[in-house]
């Protein structure tokens, strides 16, 4: 809980700082404009969904580097099926769902049954799905043109707020809320969530306690790839067209960064869904800041993001160490038995 407050504090600080530097001091309204705020929420929601997915894998002590390429495969594949091959909508959606869940299943099987390292499996996935997508699309941009407006409103639409004009809750935010609540219930209120945390903490001990650890790990990869697929659908609905060469590039790293900022340890066994969502929001506000604040050159974006993540993780580690030391001196001391 303290951790969530901490990351929320950072989010607030960056948010207010950006407002200050981009709007108040230059005396204009770009950051706080309805358009920008709505867009910020929309992007946060989209990245939040894929970040929740990777959080499950990170909690097991694994990693998924293929997310960006899965976003690309699904994001290009869906318009390819709908616009180019004229598949009926339900069939196309079922197909992309099956493909993304299938990818997760294959990753999970390779990690558990073949005992391959998650890093290697999903790094190969990163290359493989991108290559496949560029192959079947022949590098042609995929999009919906003027069609499928209703379907696209899943990402572009908004739910109007009563008594507020010109500003609505973007649809992806509603989807994120549903995904987040379900993920949070699963992680904290069911035995399976407990099993995931337990095996992330110590896989061998979990196995020795009668937990089918392989099955739980496979499930985590399926959730991750499934949410990456959902993300791919929503991302392409949002922007309308996708280029196979770079659609979803680096998204896995933004997702992993959000999860880590949100309190997931790459050693496994730790993480909260709310923290991950706040982490995703922080990433988007940061990117927004770099775009809008004149003093920051656009081209050092990655350097700033890298520095902020590193700082956040270091501070967290220091705080943890101090807390552990304090605990050592109180609590159990003086008990010789």
């Amino acid at each position: 809980m303290k951790k969530i407050l901490g990351i929320f504090g950072i989010l607030l600080a960056v948010y207010l700082g950006t407002w200050m530097l981009s709007d108040i001091i230059p005396g204009r309204q770009s950051f706080m404009s309805d358009f920008n705020q709505e867009n910020l929420i929309r992007r946060t929601a989209l990245f939040g969904i894929i970040s929740i997915g990777v959080a499950f894998v990170i909690i097991t002590g694994g990693i998924d580097l293929s997310i960006g390429s899965v976003v690309c495969l699904i994001g290009c594949g869906l318009p390819w099926l709908l616009s180019e091959h004229r598949w009926p909508v339900p069939l196309a959606l079922a197909a992309v769902a099956a493909v993304s869940l299938g990818i997760g299943l294959v990753h999970g099987l390779m990690v558990t049954k073949l005992r391959l390292q998650p890093f290697v499996v999903t790094l190969c996935g990163l290359l493989f799905y991108r290559g496949i997508t560029r192959g079947f699309t022949r590098d042609q941009t995929q999009g919906f043109g003027n069609e499928f407006k209703e379907l696209r409103s899943l990402a572009t639409g908004e739910v109007p707020l009563p008594f507020v004009e010109g500003f609505g809750i973007p649809m992806p935010w509603i989807i994120l809320a549903v995904v987040g609540v379900l993920a949070s219930l699963f992680l904290n209120k069911t035995i399976y969530g407990r099993y995931l945390l337990a095996l992330g903490n110590n896989e061998e001990a979990a196995k020795y306690s009668g937990i089918d650890t392989d099955r739980m790990i496979i499930l985590a990869y399926v959730i991750c790839a499934g949410l990456a697929g959902l993300g791919g659908v929503l991302f392409v609905f949002d922007v309308n067209s996708a280029q196979p060469v770079d659609f979803g590039n680096f998204y896995e790293l933004f997702a992993i960064a959000a999860a880590v900022l949100g309190g997931c340890s790459l050693r496994g066994g730790q993480g909260t869904i709310l923290g991950v969502i706040i982490g995703a929001a922080l990433m988007q506000v940061l990117r927004n800041m770099i775009t809008l604040v004149d003093q920051i050159p656009q081209n050092i974006e990655y350097a700033i993001i890298g520095a902020v993540i590193l700082a956040g993780v270091s501070v967290d580690e220091l705080v943890k160490r101090v807390a552990a030391r304090r605990r050592k001196w109180t609590g159990t001391e003086g008990e010789a038995g």
């Binding site: 337990a198 903490n201 110590n202 001990a205 020795y208 066994g269």
Partner: peptide, 15 residues
């Protein structure tokens, strides 16, 4: 093989 060292007594006992 026996413990989730970073987790609480409760979570270990009930696992």
């Amino acid at each position: 093989q026996g413990l989730l060292l970073e987790m609480a007594v409760r979570e270990n006992l009930s696992l």
